[in-house]
Nucleic acid binder design. Structure first.
Lengths: 333, 333
DNA sequence: ACGAGGTTTTGAGACGTTTCATTACTGGCC
DNA sequence: GGCCAGTAATGAAACGTCTCAAAACCTCGT
């Protein structure tokens, strides 16, 4: 059905080895035969059989991308970066959603091992990377995504969440706010903890009254409810930092319902700068993470490790977030 | 490095063929040897070499998913559905963003052909499916995603956009609205055209004044600008249907800026029911598409074609959208 | 004890590449 | 004309799996 190198060789009256050379080492075949072979390839519409190649090579130009949930806008953007870098280098991306479940993650790692993928990019569901050690030992290039490297056996790429928290708080302090509420999410999420640390760092040098509110989930309705409750018990900050944009949206709803104007009465800073932040009723000031770049860089890292394992040194790349100021924040009244 | 069937065979003192049978036809191996082999497998941590399998089989349990942009929430959800169905059947998904560019699409199709993937799910960048014919002829199971089948050579899975438009308009008509604005997007987008057709269908049986506004893009700011302009030239509908939720969000902003209340002065219906619709300043009534189900069904279709090509009959599956009523629509004053 | 008939197991070949040691050419030089 | 040193092209082996015809092993019944 599909043409193979054998067919090409026959048509060009040449040996299979020569066809292989035309494909992989063109410079070592004479221009005359090269032409002949290339013509045969075109005529037959020959396309190399990747699995055969992979079998021979022992591993493939495939990147396994394991994320908690591609539907999370953060990872969606990361995936785009990964894919673009991969395509550039002739790699292909296998998408794996772990749903934060160790079982699913394990299952996927098994599949990826079976596929003998050349590289894996993963945001691990659990702390350690034990299940990865075996892959690494077998020569798979691995990098940790949005996760600080707890190991010296792999690269890691992350965003400085503490800095992000600091930026958010400093922005408000610079505007004169001295009574700030921190709308946190579940404290067992490392990103939330880091952002909080950054906020503390920024506030400790100024006499700021910092109040902490905890939402049960990172959703708009959880934010709405948490702020509602806080208002009911008399909280009256002049500004608020939220652990992510969805919480911020919920917070805005609750505040507006209570008759407060944004930013005149309360300033709000979100986190993530999701697409929607700019389109909200009051465009949201937010901390943006270089998501695409994160994915792109991570992919480049594992690709370079794949290309030349000996010349590769594992590294920890840490990106810097950036605050995007919009209309939801203003000077204190 | 990695154990192969040969190693397993040696350890279990059995032939390679027997190991293969334990893996693929366990029932034709005596329990005793089967045990022995399984133990050897466990002991060596043997994981089958997928590329070798694929080489032998001629094609692989891989689904190539080609979409315009995974960052588009619609396709993100579709992808989740595809992935879940794939995983269930032991398939793996290769992610390909075409960016609506024919060149990128072609390139990916070439790569997928090279990988000898067993199935392809695609939202084609251009009208025809010429570049796919070759794949289909070679026995790849192909299905068109969110695209009506213009061919009898492949399955297709889509959502009835005309029905969606009709649902939106009927909802408003049912609330008593007789002066409705249709905020369209670029008319060369088929989905926009279909939704419009549905709106026309719904309105023609009632004496409704339908005004059409065209936004240059499907974004919040384009919607804001278009509605701004329409208001300036004196448009005063009591309700509005928008080609998607982002346009609706933009429209709401423009209307509120002009001092109108939603839904008291103007009712708004969006389309897509993106996550954010429920969290907007005024929660948005919107038309929801079964995105996850779309992807899941499409994947199942190609998987079944892969499993048994002869028993497979190509089909066109068409899903029905659903209107989700929230606070942005109300009875006419 | 033998053979028929059934159940297990074996072994070789093929899938499409790449690699690498050989062999076959080429032109230049004495 | 014969030889040398390159340069080009060849052919066989190997990667890990599956398949299928053939061989080996049982279990009965006679």
């Amino acid at each position: 059905m599909t043409a193979s190198m054998k067919d090409v060789a026959a048509l060009a009256a040449v040996s299979i080895g020569t066809v292989s050379n035309v494909l992989n080492n063109p410079q070592m075949v004479s221009p005359k035969t090269r032409d002949r072979v290339e013509q045969a390839i075109a005529q037959l519409g020959f396309i190399p059989n990747a699995p055969a190649r992979q079998l021979r090579a022992g591993r493939s130009k495939v990147i396994g991308l394991v994320v908690p949930d591609i539907a999370n806008p953060f990872f969606t953007e990361v995936a785009r970066g990964v894919e673009d870098a991969a395509m550039e280098a002739g790699f292909v991306v296998i998408l794996c959603n772990s749903d934060e479940q160790a079982a699913r993650e394990d299952r996927y790692l098994r599949v990826l091992e079976s596929q003998r993928v050349g590289a894996i990019l993963i945001t691990p569901a659990r702390k350690g990377i034990k299940p990865l050690q075996r892959l690494i030992a077998n020569g798979t290039a691995v990098a940790l995504l949005d996760h600080e490297g707890g190991t010296r056996d792999a690269c890691s790429v992350s965003v400085d969440d503490a800095l992000g928290g600091q930026l958010a708080a400093s922005h408000l302090i610079g505007l004169g706010h001295r009574s700030i509420a921190w709308l946190a999410g579940p404290p067992d999420i490392p990103q939330v903890a880091d952002r909080q640390a950054g906020i503390l760092r920024a506030t400790e040098e100024h006499s700021v009254l910092l109040e902490r509110i905890v939402a049960g989930q990172m959703t708009a309705s959880a934010g709405d409810a948490a702020v509602d409750a806080a208002l009911a018990r008399g909280m009256t900050p002049s500004a608020m930092v939220c652990a992510n944009d969805l919480l911020a949206i919920g917070a805005m709803r609750a505040l507006m319902r209570a008759g407060m104007r944004i930013p005149q009465d309360v300033s709000i800073v979100g986190y993530d700068d999701i697409d929607f932040a700019a389109s909200a009723a009051v465009p949201l000031t937010s901390v943006r993470q270089p998501k695409y770049e994160l994915g792109f860089a991570a992919a480049q890292l594992v690709i370079s490790e794949f290309e030349d394992r000996r010349a590769h040194a594992h590294q920890r790349v840490r990106f810097q977030p950036q605050i995007v100021v919009r209309e939801s924040t203003g000077s204190v009244a």
